[in-house]
Amino acid sequence: MLHIKDLRVSVEDKEILKGVNLDINPGEVHAIMGPNGSGKSTLANAIAGREEYQITQGSITFDGQDLLDMEVDERAHAGVFMAFQYPIEIPGVSNATFLKSAINALREARGQEELSPVELLKLLREKARMLGIDESFLKRSLNEGFSGGEKKRNEMLQMALLEPKLGILDETDSGLDIDALRIVADAVNQLRGPERSFLIVTHYQRLLNYIVPDYVHVIYDGRIVKSGDKELAIQLEEQGYDWIKAEAVAG
């Protein structure tokens, strides 16, 4: 489904990703771990299509299409969704307006009819309830004045509504208490299916107790330096990242 080959990405002329290779098949859950500043968010943003991240080399294909050739909104239409590490606050655009616009834009791109306001509201309410989000949220400005946990849950609400083929979670777990963490994990687990894959970026192993990954990769200094199964996450939790760094330096 997603094939990343020798991806090099620079930000402001500084090379951050230095040749990343990653293959994700339909239905798989991959976790990406690594110390702060190693390039996890850069990888997520490069897939989502953020302009500041310049691709200097390599390729990303998604469902056989050249993802790097697609506009940001086209990537979303193709089924890529990234939950932001720091969701943006947009005063004056209500959460409901935003969600309606997104759902209908996606439906239009997929050749489906727009949902009627009644159908939309029903859908919004149903998914909000699933994520433990109060309905009053929908009337408020997008993320404005939301707590960290509320913002993350709002990201999960968007993912649940947009039903992507690939869901990327960029440290959605950080700053969440255990209840909120469970809600996020439930949302992902409910969406898991043979055709839907996830890339879970996390700093801690904690989230992976609830969302059990098929593969775990460790990224360090812009490269994936180690891959394994969920045992690798546990090992990292116990031993920290120093041994990874040492191995990487030793080559």
Partner: peptide
Amino acid sequence: AVFYLRSRGIPERQARNLLQQA
């Protein structure tokens, strides 16, 4: 903000209009 809206599938023109309306 434009990127955030577009990343949810909202076409660029519409994203910019939404922000202007806001």
